Computed example of a mutant assay.
Amino acid sequence: MRRLFDEELADLDTSFTEMGLLVSETIQHAVQTFLDHDRSGANEIIEGDKAINQREIALEKKTFEMIALYQPVTTDLREIVTILKAVSVLERIGDNARNIALSTIHVKGNQRVAEIEQQIGETGAKVAKMVADVLMYYVNDDAANADRMSIVASEVSEDTKHIRDLAVESMKQDPELVNASTDYLVVGGYLKRTSDYVTDIAEWIIYKRTGKIVELNPGASSFI
C-alpha cells in the first residue's frame, strides 16, 4: 500500500509541476503577445486556458481520491493539501494570462506608449520568473527561498505602481491615449495580482515543509 501511495504521490507532484510550467510559459507569452500586438497569439492563449482549467480539475480530483483511499497523515497529508490549494492558485494565474490576452485584442496598434510597454515587458518577465522559481522551490522542498518570494513581490508592486503612474500621466498629456493607457493599467493590475498569487503558493510550500501557516502578503499594497 505504501509503495502504491508513493508512486501516486510522485505522479501527482509531476502533474502539478507540469501544470505550473505551462502556466509560467503562458503568462510570459501573454505579456509578449500584448507588447507585440499579436492578436492571433492572444487568441491561442484564450483558447489554451481551457487546457489549464482541465488540468486543475484533474489534479483536484486526484487529490480527493488519494485522501479518501489512503487517508494520509502528517507530512503526506500536508503535501497533498499543498497541491490541492496551490493548483487552484495556478489556475487563477492562468486566468490572468487569458485576461492579458483579452487586453491585447482591445488595444489599437496606433495607440502605444513605448516607455510603459518597456516597463510592462520587464515586469512581466519578472513575474513569469517568480512562477518558475516558486515551482522549483516546491520541487526542492525549499521553504527558505519560498519565504523570500515576498521580497520579489514587493519589487513587482513598485514596478506596477510605476506602470500606473506612467499610464495616468499619458492620459493627462494626450486624451487619445486614454483607451491604451487604460489597458496598460489593467495589464499592470493582472501582473500585480499574479505576483500576489505566487506568494500564496510560497505560503503553502512553507506549510508543506514546516506545518506552519504564514502570511507573506498581508495586503499592504494594492493596485486598481
Rank of each mutant, 00 (worst) to 15 (best):
A30C: 01
V31T: 08
Q32S: 12
Q32R: 12
L35A: 02
D36M: 11
H37A: 13
H37Y: 11
D38R: 08
D38Y: 07
D38W: 07
D38F: 05
D38Q: 09
D38V: 07
R39Y: 05
A42F: 06
E44H: 13
I45L: 13
E47S: 13
D49P: 11
A51I: 13
Q54Y: 03
R55K: 14
E56Q: 14
E56G: 08
I57R: 08
L59K: 05
L59Y: 07
E60M: 08
K62Q: 15
K62E: 15
T63L: 06
E65S: 12
M66Q: 10
I67C: 12
A68K: 04
L69S: 09
Q71K: 12
P72F: 09
P72W: 00
V73M: 14
T74M: 11
T75E: 14
D76S: 06
L77C: 14
I80R: 05
I83M: 07
L84Q: 11
L84W: 10
A86Y: 05
A86D: 14
V89C: 02
E91A: 09
R92S: 08
I93V: 10
D95F: 06
D95R: 05
D95K: 05
D95C: 03
N96A: 13
N99R: 07
N99Q: 02
N99A: 10
A101F: 01
L102V: 11
S103G: 00
S103T: 08
V107G: 01
V107H: 02
V107Q: 11
K108L: 10
G109F: 06
N110A: 07
Q111A: 07
A114I: 04
A114V: 08
E115A: 13
I116F: 00
Q118N: 00
G121C: 03
G121K: 05
T123G: 01
G124F: 06
A128I: 01
A128T: 04
K129S: 09
V131D: 06
V131M: 04
A132I: 04
D133C: 04
D133R: 01
L135K: 01
M136Q: 12
M136W: 00
Y137N: 02
Y138D: 07
D142Q: 01
A143K: 11
A143Y: 09
A144R: 10
N145L: 03
N145D: 04
M149D: 04
S150K: 15
S150G: 02
I151Y: 05
I151A: 07
A153M: 10
A153Q: 09
S154Y: 01
S154R: 09
E155W: 10
V156R: 02
D159A: 13
T160I: 06
K161E: 12
K161Y: 09
H162Y: 09
D165S: 12
D165C: 04
A167S: 15
V168T: 13
S170A: 15
Q173Y: 05
D174F: 05
D174W: 03
